[in-house]
Amino acid sequence: MSEHTATKPTETHGHAHDEHSHEEHHGSMLSHVKPYLIIGAALFVFTLITVGLSYFDFAEYSLFRKLFGIIGVHGMGINITVGLIVATFKVCLVGAWFMHLKQEGSTIWKPLGLTLFFCFCLLMLFLLAHSDPIPSTSFTQH
């Protein structure tokens, strides 16, 4: 939970306190939501960047061909890699600010970390079928 809603354990129900907090926050709406607006704007910009980059054919330029050749990415793969990097960055923005992951404690992070690890395993499933096939049994055979 963000620092705004975390209630001290000693607090009890009651309007007296809530009225108090209301006055405390009054008039500072913009300063509270400013980070969210900035992140929202950044997401808009990065969406446009992703779209723009997809029309830019990296594989046509020898610089990118050489650069991405090092990690074994060729042709269309360069565009895909760049696109996914931008998408991952956007996802991190959403997670860290909109979902308040920046402020979460270990009760959330531990299971979430495990989840991300297993999800990564799932996404890498294709490696199991691709990396080490016995000839003529590979699933790529049509």
Binding site: L43, T47, T50, V51, S54, M76, N79, I80, G83, L84, V86, A87, K90, V91, V94
Partner: peptide, 10 residues
């Protein structure tokens, strides 16, 4: 955010 690039763009 992932669905958009992988289907529309890439």
């Amino acid at each position: 955010i992932f669905v958009f690039p992988i289907f529309y763009l890439l």
